[in-house]
Design a protein around this nucleic acid. Structure first.
Length: 497
RNA sequence: GCCGAUGUAGCUCAGCUGGUAGAGCAGCUGAUUUGUAAUCAGCUGGUCGGCGGUUCGAAUCCGUCCAUCGGCUCCA
């Protein structure tokens, strides 16, 4: 017998080899019908997998995010099975669950495929779901695994396998479909009662734009048809609140092909709104000890070479403007940072003058690839409420705190309640990508983390997402459609010179 | 930039396999004065995204470019 600790801390005894489904049955039949996967200690397992030692468990259902993830991951497998039956010979990339559903990256070879094919695929998936296929987990040796996918001609899987360690490779088999997969999966496919394929898109293999583009099919599934219907209504509602639609209807902003793509025109009502917001923000900044400054819209290329931005972003800026006689090169200002540094350097400063806080509503222009543009959230010309604080290393933490308090104050005023805070640190494997000393990086990273903790913020830490000059803290406000939308960002910076 | 889709009146859209454009709402004119989006009648309004091609004839087929949308990549 082994001891199983349930989430309420009660301990029950079960025979060795007991499965999540069996534990669920011993609690209630209803739970057993709904259990999708099981958390065993810190891992998520198949609910049908045997547990052989004392464990702390949590049965996961549709109401748990992990349960949903299991369902969606299994749905990706099922979709792949359906596609393989309908389009023999296609090759598979990866097929994970995501925040809202799942996708699978597939090389369709010469099959033409479009969203018109979705109904056919959906129908096949539901057919297969009804077959109550089990997901069989198998440990496979690396050579055997490579052999299987080489034989099948799935070169993408072979490539994935080459990066994996022998002894940790598992296959999952459901119906006629076998996939390289860590799992876990739902007990059987009949849990999937409703499925909707949402969109089709190109996606580079392994996220590398130099490699082949596979066809990615997005979908979502539910344990009840009613939930799918509700989700579709939710999507419709989100469409109604799209800022692009509202901006047009309320006459806040517009775009003109003649002016250029990604260059918004602010209409009288939008400009009025923006003015009010700016006045409010400037008032807040003044109170917090910021001084307003102003800079021209162009700057000598040398300025950006000194700051390091040129080397990093020169290619993704508009081409330089050249003076007709002298041939000097100017950039359309892509960021305010180096200008503010020049303002700081206008006169000699004593440490007693610090911190110096400079703020500006600075308009910047960046070359964004045409396919990246999106309403007002991704444009080629925009105004940043930008500030730079010059302070001693000892003051970093307090200054960060101050900035965070301002952000919180503004969020409260604007009624932004639903947001997550992302702390972006440097990639410890690639330190040469960043400028500045290790010591200062560590100091800055520590300050950010400590402040976030002291303020009790719900944070996510991402390694390797820092800017080249310093760690960042981003506030992602969740819009109505639940998508993370980056809003304020603050960063500690090191400047050479 | 890449993959896929879309592009018809101010807005939302219809127009099957080619025969020179339609509806609702908005707008205008008039009637109605009725309790709350949106009462009635009439009218105005479109080089069917641009350019080229096939055809006796193209919104419809082909090519190309542009823009938009969903993703990918990128995001100082």
């Amino acid at each position: 017998m082994i001891n199983i600790t349930l989430p309420d801390s009660s301990v029950r005894q079960y025979p060795e080899g007991v499965t999540g489904v069996e534990i669920a049955k011993s609690i209630s039949e209803g739970l057993a019908r709904n259990v999708l996967s099981i958390q065993v200690n810190d891992e998520i397992w198949d609910a049908t997998r045997s547990i052989s030692s004392d464990s702390k468990i949590k049965l996961l259902t549709w109401s748990d995010p992990e349960g949903k993830a299991t369902m969606w991951h299994s749905s990706a497998h099922l979709m792949a099975e359906a596609i393989e039956l309908l389009y023999p010979g296609v090759k598979f990339g990866i097929g994970p669950d995501i925040e809202n559903g799942f996708y699978y990256d597939i090389d369709f070879g010469n099959y033409p495929i479009s969203s018109d094919d979705f109904p056919k695929i959906e129908k096949k998936i539901l057919e297969l779901a009804k077959e109550k296929q089990n997901f069989l987990r198998k440990d496979v040796a690396k050579t055997e695994a490579i052999g299987y996918f080489t034989g099948k001609g799935d070169e993408y899987k072979v490539e994935l396998l080459q990066g994996l360690e022998d002894g940790q490779i598992t296959f999952y088999e459901s119906g006629k479909f076998t996939d390289l997969c860590r799992g876990p999966h739902i007990p059987d496919t009949s849990f999937i009662k409703a499925i909707k394929l949402l969109s089709i898109a190109g996606a580079y293999w392994r996220g590398d734009e130099k490699r082949k583009q596979l066809t990615r099919i997005y979908g979502i599934s539910f344990p009840k048809q009613k939930e799918l219907d509700e989700f579709l209504v939710f999507l419709e509602e989100a469409k109604k609140r799209d800022h692009r639609k509202l901006g047009k209807e309320l006459e806040l902003f517009a775009f003109s092909q003649k002016v250029g793509l990604g260059l918004p025109l602010w209409l009288p009502r939008g400009a009025a709104l923006r003015e009010r917001l700016e006045m409010f923000l400037k008032k807040v900044q003044k109170k917090a000890g910021y001084e307003q400054v102003m800079c021209p819209h162009i700057g000598n290329v040398e300025l950006y070479k000194t700051s390091g931005h040129y080397q990093k972003y020169g290619e993704s800026s508009f081409r330089p403007i050249t003076t007709p006689v002298e041939g000097e090169e100017f950039f359309l200002k892509p960021m305010n940072c180096p200008h503010h540094c020049e303002i700081y350097k206008v006169k000699p400063r004593s440490y007693r003058d610090l911190p110096v806080r400079l703020a500006e509503f600075g308009t910047v222009y960046r070359y964004e690839q045409s396919g990246e543009l999106h309403g007002l959230t991704r444009v080629r010309g925009f105004t940043q409420d930008d500030a730079h604080i010059f302070c001693t290393p000892e003051q970093v933490k307090d200054e960060f705190k101050g900035v965070m308090d301002i952000v919180m104050l503004i969020f409260k005023a604007l009624n932004f309640k639903d947001f997550i805070v992302q702390i972006s640190l440097r990639d410890p494997e690639n330190k040469e990508k960043y400028i500045g000393s290790d010591e200062n990086w560590e100091k800055a990273e520590r300050a950010i983390r400590e402040v976030a903790e002291e303020r009790g913020l719900n944070t996510v830490i991402e390694l390797g997402e820092a800017a080249f000059y310093g760690p960042k803290m981003d506030f992602m406000v969740n819009g109505f459609h639940g998508e993370g939308c980056p809003w304020p960002e603050m960063a500690a910076r090191h400047y050479p010179g």
